[in-house]
């Protein structure tokens, strides 16, 4: 079985693009539309990586990272933030929440896969 990645983004267009890129590289992919859904999807799963957007309804990506880090099973799972936010203070928040890395959209498929392979 391939490695399992959860991608979290409120834009279904963006989710499709991320999933297309990851599946093309042989990964298994789960999707969620916001932080709340992501916590539900992640529960009880063995995830190898989580990729999340920041600005989402119900629960934003930074809060999601904090919540995941508070769970023993995701304490050390790599979490990448993939967002249009490039503000240094926002990045700092992501880092403090426990994110592994920060990627600013738009992403190139090659670069995304490069970063994914680095953190896995």
């Amino acid at each position: 079985m391939g490695r399992l990645i959860l991608t979290v983004d409120d834009s279904s267009t963006m989710r499709q693009m991320i999933t297309f890129t990851l599946k093309g590289a042989g990964f298994d992919v789960l999707e969620a539309g916001d932080g709340v859904e992501a916590l539900g999807v992640a529960a009880g799963k063995k995830l190898d990586l989580i990729i999340t957007d920041v600005n989402m309804p119900r629960m934003d990506g930074i809060t999601l990272v904090q919540r995941l880090r508070a769970l023993p099973e995701f304490k050390f799972t790599p979490i990448l933030v993939l967002t249009t936010e490039s503000d240094a203070s926002m990045k700092q928040k992501g880092k403090e929440a426990g994110a592994t890395g920060w990627i600013v959209k738009p992403f190139s498929p090659e670069k995304l896969l490069d970063v994914v392979n680095k953190v896995l």
Partner: peptide
């Protein structure tokens, strides 16, 4: 232009 946003790894 390369289609890349910035990437930063925190670890």
């Amino acid at each position: 232009r390369p289609m890349n946003g910035d990437v930063e790894l925190f670890t």
